[in-house]
Design a binder for these strands. Structure first.
Lengths: 335, 335
DNA sequence: GTGAAAGCGCTAACAG
DNA sequence: CTGTTAGCGCTTTCAC
């Protein structure tokens, strides 16, 4: 059996309450008894039982992070930011791989309900705003990465999709492209919607007529991007550039181009989103949009922890962070 | 306040013990009362408090996974296997990013000591075999990925480094290479040691004299591989192939070659280890060794859970899994 | 500044 | 088959 607080108390010649007090610095203990207690703890190698502590104090010092896929580079970098900042604040992090399934996400959210965790961070959630808000209203602490939710108690961090999409199109137009394909992710995703919006806005700004046939869905994955591109090629449409709503799909574009003998960037310019590490290594190097993923993770835990501890800093609850267009060879005309 | 077992008991008109029994299927309850209880649970939306359950039952149904870096593709895939299999067994997974620091690793291991977790999985740990064994001897459940530990109670899963290293060298020799550089990782890592051993063995088998100047340390990262390669080039040594102990270093080799105008594979053949996704996308595509990372993660949790539950299946405790040499363009002479 | 005692919500004997 | 009871190990009033 492990050593318990009462054992420490006995050795130190004090009551368990006093041991608890020095452990938690909850109230003032005389220097002398504190020393006795500390040395008893040391001597016995005492470690407070977490379950007992959790039960009594009604918190677990644990949060969970729910993502569609642990493995995806984008998520794992956000998670790293979350984990590191959580550690700095003495919080533990439970990872939840929802595998793109809503019911699994819901299942993981039960960790909140049964008090396994004090709070949850949702990344690229499949739940609707209303569903998320509802959880918050039930008194659970939730924070969201990647989108904005209109709710006073839900910290959010996200990038301005519309803004950077416009930048991408501006860049492409600057390279004399006027027939630009947009590859969207699955329709339910807010990111798809907003990136499309930015694309449309930018076209309008440049008075380029919008051609609906240049919009294809690639489901945010490599295969989808590849298939979409093939469809486009088969239709013999005229276009000179592709803006893919993420790098995965852009990678699919590369593959399709290789098959059809289309040279990037000479015959087709390509831009993705996410700054996957592959972008730097592939030939030609791929233009993309970088988001401060690690920082986003770090900030969101901080805010969540603030919420959980009622540190109602009157400072912001939502954060719109800037992303940066990285121009590489896939979208530069070699003059 | 949340609903508790006693509330359910009251509604169902039974004792809390009975509710607990239907919840845990610990002993037989009549169909009739079971139904009453179930409907009360449903009606109230009752979820058993995890902390209370943990305290009483002396387990947390949680394990932790300690890795040097969450972000590294290799680890995140193993973690995915772990998480998915854990979920299937109703276990939660706490991720611990040790950031390549031994003291942080030790700190995370305290999760075992304070009973936050029931067991821990160590991946690419910096701890010595003796240190790990010691934890096990203190009664904590530990499992290890990536190396073999001589200890009856520690499940291990690992690949045969010596074997695949020999295969790599055989392959290279088969391509008429006889002057082959070996790029090792940091010396403390067992992987470095064993991969070097395989390299040496294979050379001997082919009666190729071993040249110590062809061995360089690249610390398992891109920068290290790049630096090592530069040193080698500057020394004007003669060699025609490089076997890097992981893909990261091999990527560094690519970069150094680009700088020095060395063409891969014509002037230099390159083989890495890990099958990072980049290998498939880089030009030339990179030969490497693939390990069943996901499966390794899945198997190791299963074994750990077995251990924790005393399911002393007399079946194996350690698993040496096969890896596969993937030959791509970086090591094929274009005849 | 310190101790006694109650109780967090659950499960597991032990009766019946 | 079901209820009563006693804790799991800790923190936190409330006294002193």
């Amino acid at each position: 059996m492990d050593i318990k607080i009462i054992d420490v108390a006995a050795i130190a010649g004090v009551s368990p309450a006093t041991v608890s007090r020095v452990l938690n610095q909850s109230s003032i203990v005389s220097t002398k008894t504190k020393e006795k207690v500390l040395s008893a703890i040391e001597q016995l190698g005492y470690h407070p039982n977490a379950a007992a502590k959790n039960l009594r104090s009604q918190k677990s010092m644990t949060i969970c992070v729910i993502v569609p896929d642990i493995n995806a580079a984008y998520f794992s970098e956000v998670i790293k930011g979350i984990e590191n900042m959580a550690y700095a604040n003495k919080y533990k992090v439970i990872i939840c791989d929802a595998q793109n399934q809503k019911d699994r996400e819901l299942d993981y959210l039960n960790l909140l309900v049964n008090r396994t965790v004090d709070g949850a961070i949702l990344i690229a959630s499949l739940l609707s705003d209303a569903e998320i808000a509802q959880f918050s209203d039930r008194g659970y602490f939730i924070a969201v990465v990647g989108r904005y939710i209109e709710h006073a108690k839900i910290p959010c961090i996200y990038t301005d999709n519309v803004k950077f999409s416009r930048e991408v199109i501006h860049h492409l137009v600057g390279q004399n492209h006027r027939e630009i394909v947009f590859l969207s992710g699955y329709a339910e995703a807010i990111d798809s919607y907003e990136r499309l919006e930015g694309y449309l806005k930018a076209l309008r700004e440049h008075q380029i007529p919008f051609r609906p046939e240049l919009i294809e869905n690639g489901n945010f994955n490599e295969e989808g991007g590849y298939d979409a591109m093939k469809r486009l090629f088969e239709k013999k449409l005229s276009f000179t550039a592709v803006f893919a709503a993420n790098d995965e799909m852009a990678l699919g574009v590369y593959r399709a181009c290789a098959e059809y003998g289309i040279r990037i960037p000479d015959q087709l310019a390509v831009v993705g989103v996410d700054n996957n590490r592959i972008c730097k290594y592939i030939t030609p190097t791929m233009s993309t949009v970088n988001q401060p993923k690690y920082t986003m993770g770090a900030i969101i835990v901080e805010k969540l922890i603030d919420q959980m501890n009622d540190n109602q800093h009157p400072d912001k609850r939502t954060f719109k962070v800037d992303s940066e267009l990285i121009i590489r060879n896939s979208s530069q005309s070699r003059v």
